Simulated scan of single mutants.
Amino acid sequence: MSNDKTKWIFDNDDDTSSNLDSDFTESIGAETIGTTDVGFDDPTQVSGDDETTRLMPSNEKTQIFLPGQSGATAASVNYDDLQDPVVGWLVVVKGPGLGQSVPIGVGMNTVGRDTSSRIALDFGDKMISGEDHARIIYDDDSRGFFIAHGTGKSITKVNGKMVATTMPLENYDVVEITKATHLRFVAFCNEKFDWSDLADKG
């Protein structure tokens, strides 16, 4: 029938369908990337603009690069480059900021409400002094933590005992900064680990 609207489907004069089959068959075979023929049985490479991008190197050791660094720069990084690594935390277990944590660094840590304090407790308790309410110290030589009273007017207590002089701070001690805000001390560094151990091992 000359006016059959479906006649073109069976029309062999147009080889478009064969071209489509050919193109489709070629597209699922090996494809050329740059100067390298890569098939789908090689999951380590995908095509880039003009070069091959490796996804899963099978014969190379895993390398971990720090953010913003790569190649030779990353390889040259050592543990002496660590800036103010965390050695422990204070976790709010009572009062404003309940469930929040703040990190403790090496050396002297002033505790205060102001964001300028090394340990800033700006969760809303106005009874916490703006600066130097208390001081928490980590001595990396002895790997010990200590707490001392600062210049704030509020009394600081550890496990219910007033901090009048510098005293040791033990893991999981409760620090009562004010009557409203209590903190649980959690140590990361101790006699079993300090960041200097990584430097010693190279």
Rank of each mutant, 00 (worst) to 15 (best):
residue 143 R to K: 13
residue 159 N to P: 06
residue 115 T to H: 12
residue 96 P to E: 13
residue 144 G to Q: 15
residue 184 R to G: 02
residue 200 D to E: 15
residue 196 S to L: 08
residue 196 S to V: 08
residue 124 G to S: 02
residue 125 D to L: 01
residue 131 E to W: 12
residue 90 L to H: 14
residue 121 L to W: 08
residue 140 D to F: 14
residue 92 V to P: 05
residue 184 R to I: 01
residue 170 E to A: 15
residue 121 L to R: 06
residue 197 D to W: 07
residue 157 K to S: 04
residue 159 N to T: 03
residue 105 G to H: 13
residue 170 E to I: 07
residue 134 A to L: 06
residue 157 K to N: 09
residue 134 A to C: 09
residue 129 S to L: 01
residue 118 R to H: 03
residue 179 K to C: 00
residue 102 V to S: 10
residue 196 S to P: 05
residue 117 S to R: 02
residue 119 I to D: 04
residue 151 T to E: 12
residue 180 A to D: 06
residue 129 S to W: 01
residue 179 K to R: 01
residue 145 F to E: 02
residue 157 K to M: 12
residue 99 G to F: 06
residue 122 D to I: 01
residue 152 G to H: 10
residue 111 V to T: 00
residue 182 H to Y: 07
residue 92 V to D: 01
residue 178 T to W: 01
residue 106 V to I: 12
residue 139 D to C: 06
residue 120 A to P: 03
residue 116 S to T: 12
residue 102 V to F: 10
residue 108 M to Y: 13
residue 162 M to C: 03
residue 115 T to L: 14
residue 197 D to E: 08
residue 127 M to I: 00
residue 187 A to Y: 07
residue 188 F to V: 09
residue 137 I to H: 15
residue 112 G to M: 03
residue 89 W to E: 09
residue 147 I to D: 07
residue 164 A to G: 10
residue 183 L to Y: 08
residue 199 A to W: 04
residue 91 V to K: 15
residue 169 L to H: 10
residue 149 H to T: 02
residue 129 S to T: 02
residue 119 I to F: 09
residue 116 S to V: 10
residue 140 D to G: 11
residue 129 S to Q: 00
residue 196 S to G: 13
residue 107 G to V: 00
residue 89 W to L: 12
residue 171 N to V: 10
residue 179 K to V: 06
residue 101 S to F: 15
residue 136 I to H: 14
residue 94 K to T: 01
residue 105 G to R: 12
residue 97 G to W: 03
residue 95 G to S: 03
residue 134 A to M: 08
residue 201 K to D: 14
residue 183 L to E: 05
residue 195 W to S: 11
residue 180 A to K: 09
residue 196 S to Q: 15
residue 101 S to V: 00
residue 143 R to A: 06
residue 195 W to L: 07
residue 169 L to Y: 11
